[in-house]
Amino acid sequence: MGKSNSKLKPEVVEELTRKTYFTEKEVQQWYKGFIKDCPSGQLDAAGFQKIYKQFFPFGDPTKFATFVFNVFDENKDGRIEFSEFIQALSVTSRGTLDEKLRWAFKLYDLDNDGYITRNEMLDIVDAIYQMVGNTVELPEEENTPEKRVDRIFAMMDKNADGKLTLQEFQEGSKADPSIVQALSLYDGLV
C-alpha cells in the first residue's frame, strides 16, 4: 500500500471509500495523518498503546488498548495497516448500531470462538476500569469489574449457560440505554 507515500493510489482510495462510511477526501485526510504518525505505514501494539495513554492519562489503558489493537489487526500480523485502521474507525465512528455491536462482540470474544464467556467479559471490564482509573464515580452495584459483569450476565445471558452469543449480546445491549450510549460516543466526531 505504498508504505511511506503521502498519497494513496486512486484505486485504493476508491476501494476504501466503498468499504467504509468515509468520502474519498476523508480517506485521504486520514491517510495523511496516519502516515505522519506512522511513517512506516504500520502501527504496532506499543504505538497503539501510546495513543491510548494520551487519551487516558489518569488510568492505565495498556490492557484495553491491547484488546482493541487485536480487533483492529484483522489479518493478525501484529501490525495495523491503514486499510485495517480506516475500516475499524469507520465501523466504530459511523457504523450502524448492529455493526458497532458486532465489532464490540469481537472485542469481548477474546478467543474468537463465537461466545463471550464470563471470564472474557471480566478481562475486558477489568481493563476498562484500569483505563479510566479513579476518574469515573461508579454506583455501588457496579464499583468492581466483578459486580459489573454479574449485572451484565444477569441481564443478557437469557439461557443461563454462562456465555453470551452474538444475538444475546446484541439484544441485551439494545435493551440497556447506557450500552447504546457508550457505543454512540464516537458518532459525529469524525
Rank of each mutant, 00 (worst) to 15 (best):
Y31D: 15
I35W: 15
L185T: 08
L110C: 07
A45T: 06
T62I: 06
A104K: 13
E146M: 07
T135G: 06
Q49M: 00
P145W: 12
G2H: 04
L97R: 08
T96I: 08
M155R: 12
C38E: 04
L16E: 02
K36F: 04
F56M: 08
S90I: 03
Q87V: 12
G2L: 01
A65G: 10
T66N: 13
K147H: 01
D60W: 14
P139K: 08
E74Q: 06
G133W: 13
Y115C: 10
V132S: 04
L8N: 14
E146N: 07
E15Y: 13
S178G: 11
D98T: 07
R102N: 06
I124L: 05
S90C: 14
A104C: 02
Q54R: 04
V125Q: 06
K7R: 03
S90E: 09
V125Y: 01
V125N: 06
F34T: 13
E26G: 15
V91Y: 13
R102K: 13
G2F: 04
K174N: 13
K32T: 10
K36P: 00
F55I: 07
L16A: 15
F34H: 06
N75S: 11
M156G: 09
F82H: 15
F22L: 10
D157F: 12
G33Y: 10
T144F: 02
G133E: 09
K147V: 15
A46M: 10
L138P: 04
T96G: 01
E141K: 12
F69P: 01
S4E: 02
K19L: 10
G47T: 00
K76T: 05
E81S: 15
P139G: 03
V180I: 02
L164I: 14
Q42R: 09
F82Y: 04
T62C: 06
Y108G: 01
V13G: 15
K9E: 04
E146W: 06
E81P: 01
N5F: 14
D111E: 13
E168K: 10
R94L: 15
F56K: 01
A182Y: 06
R102P: 01
G172N: 15
K63E: 08
G114V: 06
E14V: 15
L8A: 10
K53V: 05
R151H: 12
K9S: 00
W103Q: 03
P139I: 10
Q42P: 10
C38N: 09
K25V: 10
F82A: 09
I128N: 05
P39N: 09
E142K: 10
G188K: 11
D98Q: 08
E81A: 13
K158M: 13
G59H: 11
A127M: 03
G95D: 08
F153E: 03
D60V: 06
F82D: 00
C38L: 02
R18T: 06
S40I: 13
A182W: 14
